[in-house]
Design a binder for these strands. Sequence first.
RNA 1: GGAGAGAUGGCCGAGUGGUCUAAGGCGCACGCCUGGAGAGCGUGUAAUCGCCAAAAGUGAUUCGCGGGUUCGAAUCCCGCUCUCUCCGCCA
Length: 435
Amino acid sequence: NTIQVNLTPMLPLKLIQEDRELVIRRLQVKNFDARVIIDQITALDQSRRQLQHQTDEKLAEMNALSRQIGDHIKAGNNAEALRLKDATASLKEQIKELQKKSAEAESALDARIIELPNLPHESVPPGKGHEDNVVVRSGGKMPVRQPGWLPHWDLGKHYDILDFDLGNKLTGAGFPVFKGQGARLERALINFFLDEGEKAGYLEILPPIMVNEDSGFGTGQLPDKEGQMYVVPVDRFYLIPTAEVPVTNIYRDTILNDSDFPLKNMAYTPCFRREAGSYGKEVRGLNRVHQFDKVEIVQIAHPDHSYQALEEMVNHVESLVHKLELPYRIVKLCGGDMSFTSALTYDFEVYAAAQDKWLEVSSVSNFEAFQANRLKLRFREAGNKKNRLAHTLNGSALALPRIVAALMENNQTPDGILIPEALKPYTGFEKIVRR
RNA sequence: GGAGAGAUGGCCGAGUGGUCUAAGGCGCACGCCUGGAGAGCGUGUAAUCGCCAAAAGUGAUUCGCGGGUUCGAAUCCCGCUCUCUCCGCCA
């Protein structure tokens, strides 16, 4: 079950050739020591080039010979043709040998290159983990916690809108069942997020929720996150961990025009994550589940404007939590907390009062050309002969479970759970009550 | 699930072993023509990697994907994927 790489991802190689020290320095911010691997890459690239050069020359020789043989046969000069044929035998063997070595050198090089994470943006702060992230701004009104307030898992039971035991029976731990007003609340949030996205210019997509291996590789889940995805072995399909995968892969192997920018897509999908290695208090209730609903926004941007696009996406997500009247903060992730694929990531956290916890509800990232390189997503630019790689971005807008958790916990009253104003047209009710 | 047909450039489409360095058409770009537009005429029209300091140039690869036969494969052989038609099953 090794990952097939169809084409050499060339971007990191170019960067390494241009400025090796820069690559090393930047990856240090992600706490990734790249020295050894970069030396290996440089050496492997050398031998790959050399081998290709040799192979190409032999191939050119063979092509010339074949043409001559054809010409001789046509001219009726069979003796000469036969003589030349003899000469091809050893050449053929040399070519075979060289091609084998070339292919080996190339896959060895590819294997190393795809181990390199994306370079973080210059502004990314160094740091080890969550505690080193930087709060860039916050908003919303902090709820005043009342005595006797219950965490959302208890509220879910009390109002019979959220049933973990039933999910456990049907599937297993981490597959919650929403019932009645709970199910309706999910549907309301999905429609609310999609409507807001449409107003912001995003085109709605309803993609497959299983993808093939090429798609998993294109957005960088494979091979990095192989163990985190559910797999359908008979057909070698992966259940998507996020709509980012199918939506961004729409643009795999395409060449856009620069007039196509910015491309703005969004999709609602269920998302599936194995979350292997998670345990304890952090995973209680809706805090961490294996299947959840999410609306994802994706942008394909011109490299010169991708950080503008990132800003715009952050503002869009902020408007959503604002309309839901949730207390939130936006943090810029430090190098150690960033994903393999990202160049810059902002996380959104909302405050869940009963747990007294900040819960991550959105992650908005610019991947620069990292995904585009794997996707072969390029664009033509007027006046530029060479096609350039586009930039890809995505963000949750929003992931539902923790939003639901915060809404339930913060809006609980003795009479029921109050629905925020903006959501009422979508739920069709003003509060969640006991049936 | 069974039987048959097919997959060629941005698109349509020709091509059954060397003249494929892929015909022809459409589209697109530029030029000529025009008061302007159209028509007409002419020219051009892919990607990836290598060599070269670079441009120019040049070598290699790519006709769904992977193997094979051959001095030589879009073309012949084997496997796979996908599409279409018919039959069966089915929300």
